[in-house]
Design a protein around this nucleic acid. Structure first.
Lengths: 102, 102
DNA sequence: TTAGTTAGTTACTTTATGTAAGTAATTATA
DNA sequence: TATAATTACTTACATAAAGTAACTAACTAA
C-alpha cells in the first residue's frame, strides 16, 4: 500500500459509499421526514435505516427531532453539512440522466 | 413501499455506492493504471478489485487494454461515461475539504 | 533449477445486510 | 376490559458481500 489519497476524501467516500446512505440523504433533500416515510420511499429495511440514521447523526449530516405527539412523531432532516451535499446529488442525477438507460 | 425515485438515479446510486467503486473511479481520473497500482494505491483487496473492474467494464465506465509485454501488462482506464463522473468526484473533494476534519 | 513477475482466482473467515417477528408507550375500538 | 392499532425502533437468525492469504498460468532472469 502506497496511498497518496487525501484522508478527508477517503472519509467522505467511506461515509457516502455505505449502502443506502446516498438514498437517505437524497430523500431528505425534499424536506424533513419520518422514519416510516424514508423506509417505504427508498425501500430500505428498518434495521439498516435505524443504523444509518444513527451514523449520519453522529457525523452531523442528519438531525433528529422528537415531537411528543401520540403516537410519538420523530422527524429526520439534513443539517447544513448534509444540505451541502446537494450539488453532489444533483450531479449524480445529471450523470444518470445522460448516461444510464431506463 | 411507495417509491417515487427515478430508476436511473437509483441505478446510479447502486453502482456508485458499491464499496471501492468510487475510489477506483477517482484513482483512474489521474490516468490509465494497472491492476497492482490501483490495488496498492487505494488499499482494496485483489479479490474485490477484480470483481469491481469486471462490473465497471460491463457498465461501460472502465475499459481494459492488454499490452502483450512480458510479463503481460494490462491497463485500466475510464471511458467517456467514466470521465463524465469527474464533476461528481470533485464535489466529493470539495465537500470533504469544507466539512470533514482530518 | 529456482526464483520473480503480473494479473488474477480459490477457499475460507469475518462482516454487513435482509427478513421477520418482537417491544414500549400510547390511544382507539368492541 | 380486552383487543387492536400506531410509530419507531430492536432482536434473532439467514444470506450475501468483503477481507485474507495462499495458489495459478505464463513467462523471464539468474
Amino acid at each position: 500500500m502506497d496511498k497518496s489519497i487525501c484522508p478527508r476524501f477517503e472519509k467522505a467516500m467511506t461515509i457516502l459509499s455505505q449502502r443506502w446512505t446516498g438514498m437517505i440523504i437524497y430523500q431528505l433533500l425534499s424536506g424533513p421526514q419520518r422514519f416510516c416515510t424514508i423506509e417505504s420511499s427508498i425501500g430500505v429495511s428498518g434495521r439498516v435505516l435505524s443504523e444509518r440514521l444513527k451514523d449520519l447523526e453522529i457525523e452531523g449530516i442528519v438531525k433528529r427531532k422528537v415531537y411528543p405527539d401520540t403516537p410519538v412523531r420523530i422527524e429526520y432532516s439534513l443539517t447544513d453539512k448534509g444540505i451541502a451535499l446537494e450539488p453532489l446529488m444533483r450531479d449524480i442525477e445529471k450523470w444518470s440522466q445522460s448516461w444510464l438507460e431506463v
